[in-house]
């Protein structure tokens, strides 16, 4: 019960003190208003002179950094694209040159080949003519030899029969036979 009596005493004391709401105590108003205006003045000074310009410049700087970084990235991208197209161009050039070299080499080889074939043809033709001539000589020689052998053989055959054949008749007879 001591709690109750104490609270009653406190309430009575508080009641004697005056109005319940310190907010309505007009005697403190000048004090509050004075310190409020001082505080607002100091806060305004701190904000307007130091804090806000600083934050504003930091934000602007950050924006600038981001923008320039993006621009730099864009530029690097363009450079990369240019490098790629240069690379492709070089590749295409090299390929074209290689094809040109191949074609030229092939032409040169063709020319050499044609010349060699012509020389070989000529040699073959010469050899063939020579061989034909030799064959003709050999054939002519063979015919003469056959005549001589046939004359000799005919003379021997006639002689073995006991007759004497004169050379003129023999030759005519052999010739006639060879022709026939």
């Amino acid at each position: 019960m001591s709690v109750d009596t104490k609270s009653v005493a406190d309430a009575a004391e508080a009641y004697e003190k005056g109005p319940g709401m310190p907010q309505l105590d007009i005697s403190t108003f000048p004090n509050q208003i004075f310190w409020l205006l001082v505080t607002l003045g100091v806060m305004y000074f701190v904000l307007a002179r130091i804090a806000l310009p600083r934050i504003s410049s930091v934000l602007a700087e950050r924006q600038g950094t981001i923008t320039s970084d993006i621009a730099a990235a864009e530029e690097l991208k363009l450079k990369a694209a240019a490098a790629e197209s240069a690379y492709n161009q070089a590749l295409a050039d090299a390929r074209a040159e290689a094809q040109a070299i191949v074609a030229r080499t092939r032409d040169e080889i063709q020319v050499d080949l044609d010349a060699a074939i012509a020389v070989a043809d000529a040699e073959i033709a010469a050899k063939a003519a020579e061989s034909e001539k030799a064959i003709a000589e050999i054939r002519d020689g063979a015919v003469d030899a056959v005549k001589v052998v046939a004359k000799d053989t005919a003379k021997a055959v006639v002689a073995s029969m006991g007759f004497e054949a004169d050379a003129k008749t023999l030759t005519a007879a052999v010739s006639a036979r060879l022709k026939g």
Binding site: N31, L47, A51, V58
Partner: peptide, 27 residues
């Protein structure tokens, strides 16, 4: 009186300190 330092002064002063701490020292 109007210029007496009171608890109003104290807590408004602490608000200023907090403001300075956050927006000046913090940045």
């Amino acid at each position: 009186s109007w210029y007496t330092p009171t608890n109003v002064t104290k807590w408004m002063g602490l608000s200023v300190l907090a403001l300075v701490g956050l927006l000046v020292i913090g940045t």
